[in-house]
Write a protein that binds this DNA or RNA. Sequence first.
DNA 1: TGCATGCCCATCCGAAAGTATGGGTCGGCC
DNA 2: GGCCGACCCATACTTTCGGATGGGCATGCA
Lengths: 213, 213
Amino acid sequence: MIGGAVSDKIRVLIADDHEMVLDVFAMYLSSAPDMAIATAKTLDEAVDHIGAEGPYDVVLLDLNMPGMNGVAGLRRAIKLNGGKPVAIITGNPTPRMLDEIMNAGSSGIVLKTTGVRSLANAIRFMHAGEHYMPLELVRERHNAGRTTKNGRLSDKEMMVLSYLAEGKQNKEIANDLKLAEPTIKMHVTSICKKLTATNRTQAVIVARDLGLI
Amino acid sequence: MIGGAVSDKIRVLIADDHEMVLDVFAMYLSSAPDMAIATAKTLDEAVDHIGAEGPYDVVLLDLNMPGMNGVAGLRRAIKLNGGKPVAIITGNPTPRMLDEIMNAGSSGIVLKTTGVRSLANAIRFMHAGEHYMPLELVRERHNAGRTTKNGRLSDKEMMVLSYLAEGKQNKEIANDLKLAEPTIKMHVTSICKKLTATNRTQAVIVARDLGLI
DNA sequence: TGCATGCCCATCCGAAAGTATGGGTCGGCC
DNA sequence: GGCCGACCCATACTTTCGGATGGGCATGCA
């Protein structure tokens, strides 16, 4: 902490629909004397807080909260908070989600798996203008999951899989990727084998359950 | 509480990969003088605990924890805990998950959205041999979600949708439901319309995102 | 050098999916 | 009674999928 009046607390807003998580935040962080905590249970509540109290020094949003709609809610909050840091707090983010979160302009990601102790440090870090991301995420960013018992998915296969996960059909995928349709079919076949799925729909289901997408 | 020596504490085991959640449990429940809390971060850890310490009076398991594999891990824990109550703790369970959890023989479901205060009561309740389930779940059990902007899904449609979500094909579904294949096709078409999906794969995706399944 | 692997493409085929049309029963509701 | 909606079925058609076969090209490794 660099000097400053006692009243210069970091104003933190935390929003999560898991009231238990909110409880622990309030409990633990109220013992950190340099922060003032506000909480919300939906994105709309959080937005109201920001509207009424002005931008917070740090905003933490749960990704699966009502009103979030994936990164759409994140973007909304970032716009509202006037340039001050907005971060995501979540459990097991998929690689895809990580990309979207960081591309949306988030100041960082806090994992619920990391314990409360590191949270105060993460908040101060982001308040200082840094981007916070746990090491294990950075390391596994590219190679997360993708290894299955039947071999690992190649880059192209991951690419095709992400289109499958949107319900696209082979012709569309071929157009988007500038490839021929048979090539896409081949990739889909390969993906299904590696995921032990019998068709594209099952492949998407398995991939989701595995956190591949 | 029915009499008993002071040393007759309820032995509780809580397993969740969100260390934050574990923290709050330890913090809050240690102030409940009639309980002794143990924690774990994976199903295997929890199993080890049970193996070493014998069955716990109440076991709480996170559904999305490493090693759980849906209800499979729940069944494993129930078998191990020798008839004493095993419950699930989770965020936003889908109707489908609720069915599976209760059919697997769980003693109840605790929502992370309900705050810590009710947790101690839930534990004592289940320790007394009762089945615990939050009211909002009981009420919305049958009618959860299913209403979309294009109308609500009928019972038959929900049934077919659940098969779609397993990647089954029309012929299989027809056999299982003792219906003709064209009928299934009709239902699938109807489902896709109501979910604004262009094919079965997309239907499964939006249904999942909506928590319909 | 040979060989495996990943990537790309073409053609062909049968099966499945999706769409359309038409017709039937049942129950609830005005 | 007439109407509507949910459910059931059949036939027929087009598109898409999944699988198989066969070929070419580049990379890297033994």
